[in-house]
Amino acid sequence: MIDLTVNGAAARVDVDPATPLLYVLRDDLHLHAAKFGCGLGQCGACTVLVDDRPVFSCLMPVGAIGTRKVTTVEGLGTAAKPGDVQRAFLHEQAAQCGYCIPGMMTRAEGLLRKTTTPTEYAMRTAMAPSLCRCGTHMRILRAVRRAAVMRGGGVVDAAEPVT
């Protein structure tokens, strides 16, 4: 038995500790926001927060989580009461197919927990592990900028290279 704290609630699952967290979230806890994309840590569709850090849940063995708190998009808010990152993404209509967006939102949440005043470069670097095939990048970046403002900060367009 493995004990977890997911979105503030205690959960107990009976799985092989080597099982990647993603399968536990989706198949055991029925939290479907985090998506399978590659199973290789290359695309970010499975990104969740462990404590405040974004991790690839397709690679993270569930047995390695310990007492750290897991946050998925379900923990950021609900359709009736979306959290501020979700509101920012809704406001910017920052999705096409939407498959990558939960990973984008948890990654943005991780960035904003670290700083609400990242530079443009820091924002793009923080988002870089996540892939979007629809080309929604510009809207996703606008949503992260908006969320930073909602948190009392803002993305600084510092005079440093974007790449």
């Binding site: 979306p82 979700q86 809704l90 209509q93 939407g98």
Partner: peptide, 9 residues
Amino acid sequence: DLPAKLTGL
């Protein structure tokens, strides 16, 4: 469709 997709439904 976005409220459901952006909240994990």
